[in-house]
Design a protein around this nucleic acid. Structure first.
Length: 274
DNA sequence: CGCCAGGTGCGAA
DNA sequence: TTCGCACCTGGC
């Protein structure tokens, strides 16, 4: 077990707010599948306590994954200076961090997320992992890693249908057949706008999904994953209803942190709703 | 039943 | 370029 200074992170919100789909909660104990290992996390006022079936480099991995190296306090301060009306929203999202997830898993997961419910997304991603991912036994439980591209390469449309992907089966099938490891680094080298354009050349990846990939796998805080929740928020608070107007407004106002602000809006709308 | 869930691709104008 | 619509699935 290792412990990490918590700083201001809100572990629950960060894990459960819909950025990632493969986690479980048991009595304040969070279990996540992080790339090649199973990780258990719990927190007190000061520390996050981490155990894993593989604890090598675990601190660095968690710091990176939970974006703990970034000074959110400073960013939030900057944002409030730009727009004092953000104060309440930021307070409400205090401790929320942008997850940094492995790109292949993020790409597949978010193609699945299109017009889909969180419950269904979780189910499909877990079914894929149970069928193709590496099995890990840990603390008397069985877990499955998200499959690598090689483990998923031979998948058929019929099998994908059995994972309840519906009309997304053909998108995943095509994507898996076109995907190479080089794609990950290729996207990393592009600026955000070009990366989104490139990702959108794949079937099943539209503006929203491409934005989520750039935010949650490449830490590009200047993207706008505008979904129904954000739309609702923007209609209620800014009387903006179409994506283009929302994008223009947030981009001009919040610049390189517009994606983060969008997430704050998303949190605030969703938290109040639930 | 009908509607919708953290959208996207497609064809028609 | 923009616009409307169908779409797998599951839950209410």
């Amino acid at each position: 077990m290792i412990k990490i200074e918590k700083n201001d992170i809100n572990l629950r919100n960060t894990i459960t707010c819909g950025q990632i789909f493969r986690y479980t909660i048991n009595n304040e104990l969070y279990t996540i599948i992080l790339d090649d290992r199973v990780v258990e996390l719990h927190e007190d006022d000061r520390y996050i306590y981490v155990t894993s079936n593989n604890e090598s480099n675990i601190k660095e991995k968690i710091m990176e994954y939970l974006d703990l190296n970034r000074n959110y306090e400073l960013i939030n301060k900057e944002l409030i200076e730009i727009d004092p009306s953000l104060k309440e929203v930021i307070k409400c999202s205090r401790g929320f961090k942008i997850i940094n997830q492995y790109p292949f898993e993020t790409m597949i997961s978010y193609i699945i997320s299109a017009n889909n419910s969180v419950r269904n997304i979780q189910k499909s991603v877990n079914l894929i992992s149970e069928k193709y991912g590496k099995k890990i036994e840990y603390n008397n439980n069985t877990y499955y890693l998200f499959p690598t591209i090689n483990e998923l390469k031979e998948v058929t449309i019929e099998e994908l249908n059995s994972f309840k992907l519906g009309f997304r089966s053909k998108y995943i099938y095509e994507f898996v057949n076109l995907f190479t490891e080089e794609l990950i680094e290729y996207v990393r080298l592009l600026n955000t706008e070009d990366a989104i354009k490139y990702l959108m050349t794949y079937k099943g990846i539209g503006l929203k999904v491409a934005s989520c990939i750039m935010l949650f796998a490449y830490k590009r805080l200047d993207v706008f994953p505008i979904d129904t929740w954000v739309k609702k928020y923007m209609i209620d608070n800014y009387n903006l209803s179409n994506v283009k107007d929302i994008e223009k407004y947030t981009k001009e106002k919040y610049g390189k942190y517009s994606g983060l602000v969008i997430q704050y809006f998303f949190n605030s709308k969703r938290n109040k709703q639930n």
